[in-house]
């Protein structure tokens, strides 16, 4: 069976519709089956539908994603309560360790994303990984900083990623590799981000899963939950009406 690939983190300028269309077409050309764009939390539903139509024209599946940057655990819980049923993917970017811990243990969070340039705010340690492994959160790595940084900054980033990828693997936390691309020229074919992960010692099989199986599993699980027929994990309505 042909492997399907996904990029869960495209960051086009949503006000520039031409760029959105170009990046969507490019994703389809490069061989992606599914893409997700980072949307603001107050993004209207009609516009999400417009994005879905653009992706449909380009023959690529679309998933809505919101990036939360809460300052306190309480703010995170409130945002999750408001937004979980509106977006297919919820990613959390941290400001503090308390928020990181809360996000890792909350089953409504899909992706844990860390500021790739401020090394003091990278809280993905063993405790964080253990909490994440008991919930449903995956560890997300953006490729963009690996392409744009140079010299000591990239060396430091690779060193952090090597440690964090090893921790994630040890605690069976799924790793998701995304592009984080803000323009077409930062987008790569699915096998290329997978090759770049060898820089922080991720083996080939895990790297391929990080751009295919793991992101697709998140979207599949959430779509199932967001469907009106969903009751609880493993339970869903198959048929309704008087004849049941």
């Amino acid at each position: 069976m042909k492997r399907l690939y996904a990029d869960l983190h495209l960051c086009p300028n949503l006000k520039d519709s031409e760029q959105v269309v170009c990046m969507t077409r490019k994703a389809s050309e490069l061989g992606y089956h599914l893409i997700a764009m980072s949307l603001p939390s107050n993004f209207p539903g009609e516009k999400i539908q417009q994005l879905r139509n653009i992706c449909k024209e380009a023959k690529v599946d679309f998933a809505s994603r919101v990036d939360l940057k809460p300052r306190t655990p309480k703010e995170l819980i409130n945002s999750l309560r408001k937004l979980r049923r509106r977006f297919e993917i919820i990613a959390v970017m941290y400001e503090s360790k308390h928020v990181a811990r809360q996000a890792a243990k909350d089953r409504r969070v899909d992706l844990l994303n860390f500021p790739l340039t401020s090394f003091r705010k990278r809280f993905f340690d063993k405790a964080e990984a253990e909490l994440a492994s008991n919930s449903l959160a995956s560890f997300e790595i953006d490729i963009k900083p690996l392409l744009t940084l140079e010299g000591p900054a990239r060396i430091r980033l690779l060193s952090s990623l090597r440690r964090e990828a090893a921790i994630a693997k040890a605690f069976h936390v799924p790793i998701v590799v995304s592009s984080g691309a803000s323009n077409e020229l930062l987008m790569r074919k699915p096998r290329e981000p997978a090759a770049l992960t060898s820089l922080f010692d991720l083996d080939e099989a895990s790297a391929i899963e990080a751009v295919s199986k793991n992101p697709l599993a998140i979207v599949k699980r959430n779509r199932e939950k967001l469907s009106p027929n969903f009751v609880a994990p493993g339970i869903r309505i198959i048929r309704g009406g008087k004849d049941c």
Partner: peptide
């Protein structure tokens, strides 16, 4: 091969002009 693939993916500029290389 994988090493070269990673190096090619890391190229963002050629002669200081934005560019990308795909295998």
């Amino acid at each position: 091969v994988e090493m070269v693939r990673a190096a090619l993916a890391s190229i963002t500029k050629i002669r200081d002009k934005p560019a990308a290389i795909h295998v």
